[in-house]
Amino acid sequence: MASPLMLVFFTALPVVLCYHSSFIDLEAKGSNKSSIRFLVVGDWGGLPYPPYVTPIETATARMMAKTASTMGSDFVLAVGDNFYYKGVTDVNDPRFQVTFENAYTQDSLNIPWYVIAGNHDHAGNVLAQIEYSQRSKRWNFPYYYYEMNFRIPKTDSTLTIIMLDTVLLCGNSDDFLDQQPKAPHSGVQANKQLIWLQERLARSKADYLLVAGHYPVWSISEHGPTDCLLKKLRPLLRKYKATAYLCGHDHNLQYLKESGIGYVVSGAGNFMDPDVRHRNQVPRGYLKFFNGDAATLGGFAHVEVNKKQMTVTFIQARGTSLYQAVLKKRDDYVSEDEDYD
Results as ranks from 00 to 15, higher is better:
residue 136 S to G: 04
residue 136 S to I: 01
residue 136 S to M: 02
residue 138 R to N: 08
residue 138 R to M: 05
residue 138 R to Y: 11
residue 141 F to A: 00
residue 142 P to R: 06
residue 142 P to F: 02
residue 143 Y to L: 03
residue 146 Y to S: 05
residue 146 Y to R: 01
residue 147 E to D: 14
residue 148 M to G: 12
residue 148 M to N: 05
residue 148 M to F: 03
residue 149 N to T: 13
residue 149 N to F: 04
residue 151 R to L: 13
residue 152 I to K: 01
residue 152 I to S: 03
residue 153 P to F: 05
residue 153 P to R: 05
residue 155 T to N: 06
residue 155 T to L: 05
residue 156 D to L: 14
residue 156 D to G: 07
residue 156 D to I: 08
residue 156 D to K: 07
residue 157 S to F: 01
residue 157 S to E: 15
residue 157 S to Q: 12
residue 157 S to N: 11
residue 158 T to H: 06
residue 159 L to D: 13
residue 160 T to I: 08
residue 160 T to G: 09
residue 160 T to N: 07
residue 160 T to E: 14
residue 161 I to L: 11
residue 162 I to A: 13
residue 163 M to C: 07
residue 163 M to K: 05
residue 164 L to V: 10
residue 164 L to A: 06
residue 164 L to G: 04
residue 165 D to G: 11
residue 166 T to L: 02
residue 166 T to G: 00
residue 167 V to T: 09
residue 168 L to F: 09
residue 169 L to I: 06
residue 170 C to A: 11
residue 170 C to R: 02
residue 171 G to E: 08
residue 171 G to V: 08
residue 173 S to M: 13
residue 174 D to W: 05
residue 174 D to N: 15
residue 175 D to H: 09
residue 176 F to G: 07
residue 176 F to P: 00
residue 177 L to M: 10
residue 177 L to G: 00
residue 178 D to N: 12
residue 180 Q to W: 08
